[in-house]
Amino acid sequence: MKYIEPASLPEALEILSADDEARCLAGGATLVAMLNADLVEPSTLIGLRRIDELAGISVSGDHIRIGATTTHAQIAGDDRLTGNAAVVRDAARQIAHSAIRNMGTIGGAVCHADPNADFPGALVAANAVLEAAGQSGRRQIPADEFFLDYLETSLEEDEILSAVMVPVEPVGARGRHLKFSRTHGDYATISISLVLAINSGACSHARVAVGSAGPAPVHLAEVDALLTGSDLSGETIKQAGQKLMEAADPVDDVRGSAEYRRMIIPGLLQRAVDELR
């Protein structure tokens, strides 16, 4: 196995498209563990850490740009991530323990697309857009369309995720990533990512996604619509929770049965709303 650390994105893309078996290495938190367990055998590892344009967070106009190799710890510690983007920061804060947060990157987390991970739901709730770089240019993929299935995204084999763009709007919104797990540091049993704007008691913006509830984050436009404009009464939340629960399709595993996971969604949604109110 070869290991290369290109200094630029075009260079990395060239190596990637030249070799079917090449793979990007970001923080390595997941990929190195997979290599150790013989689950993957790439011919070449392309280390991304020297590529400056993939690193760091910048605010430009109507969105906040989070470079793919930005670590969870950097995101968790950046107080520019407020308003709509707060949900992303809140998710980063709750990933694993600090060792993993110092190692793992948002690019690695979303490209790995583990349905139990925290970022996917948060990015959907924040209406983020993922920027994919290929040799022929860049394209933008809404978070809603990025996560396809268990460990599967709409990124092409020869593309590299370059950044995650989180809209600044709505500015007055607040975000909460409510992670329910068996212990602190465990993957979520269910997570609720919620962005709400409330103006004089009425909800003026709502976007909610549920993680660990199926192969991709569960997001229903009809639920956002139900909440938006409502007074977020217990009854409304219950209805919304019910709909999300019906749409959820989680798996049975050590964290709980599929049924258990579905059934706790409404209660957790209510709690997330209460915490933002």
Partner: peptide
């Protein structure tokens, strides 16, 4: 065996 990593098999950590 279905719990063969500490992601599946939970131990008490300091914060528990």
């Amino acid at each position: 065996p279905v719990t063969t990593t500490f992601a599946d098999y939970l131990l008490v950590a300091a914060d528990n």
